[in-house]
Design a protein around this nucleic acid. Structure first.
Lengths: 130, 130
DNA sequence: GTTTGCCTTGACGTCGGCGGCAAGGTTTAG
DNA sequence: CTAAACCTTGCCGCCGACGTCAAGGCAAAC
């Protein structure tokens, strides 16, 4: 399979696949004329990459998952390195959820106070107009 | 007050203040030699900018708050434009919280399954070793 | 005078995951 | 023969809030 076909089947672009290769995530063979040649297993790898990216992983974090798949595992998750990344990412997400919750709280209060202030000012203005 | 003093009192850098100026958020006078001259009120403005940036606002979103302060209000929050931005940002944060919660859920499940799989494999390996 | 420490503008670098274009080679179809 | 549709490498652009020089002007202390 050449790059165009893999791109289409994986729902991405050739540019993206070349970028993944430059980052060491995929390493296709080359045919006589220099064209990249991928085997079927690479489709699975690209799908794994895309799924993890969608969840918010960076390419560096994804590397262990790809290695895990290449090692012959049915899932990219089951190797120790992948589990370590999953744990770290879960912790990061929890942390971010906390901070984002605090931000939400602050925004909510700030909005409530701003509206209260405006109503108050409005009332004073009307009472002066009376 | 010149740029160095304002930077120090605001806890930021001169580069940052010049950047804010290039973005139209602050507009200092100039002394005879071309130096920027800020008055005391600008310190408040810079603090407002920094606080909103820390919460996750972009400079574009911050502009109405600065205008509100310049209009003489005791708080940058109380003007209609600011309130509109606050509402939008709150909605954005809520949305992001939802998605991040879903991601957390997925990560949690994925991690649990990976660990379960590893324990299972481990048990099978030991039983073969028996 | 000269060193020191402010200030000025301008322009390029950063991070990540690509998009897009240029300039060319290859292969297939008509 | 030629057009069309692939492929190759390489390099610039993007976004946002700055950091980091570079090259020079201005001011006060020694």
């Amino acid at each position: 399979m050449r790059i165009g076909e893999l791109a289409e089947r994986a729902g991405t672009s050739t540019r993206t696949l070349r970028y993944y290769e430059s980052q060491g995530l995929v390493c296709p063979r080359r045919s006589a004329n220099g064209y990249r040649v991928y085997d079927e297993a690479e489709l699975r790898v690209v799908h794994e990459i895309r799924a993890l990216l969608a969840v918010g992983f960076g390419l560096d974090d994804i590397r262990p998952f790809v290695a895990c798949l290449r090692a012959g595992n049915s899932s990219g998750d089951v190797c120790p390195d992948s589990v370590a990344v999953l744990r770290r990412k879960l912790a990061e997400v929890d942390d971010y959820l906390d901070r984002l919750g605090a931000v939400r709280h602050q925004l909510h209060d700030q909005l409530a106070r701003a509206i209260a202030h405006r109503e108050e000012t409005c009332l004073r203005t009307r009472s002066r107009a009376d």
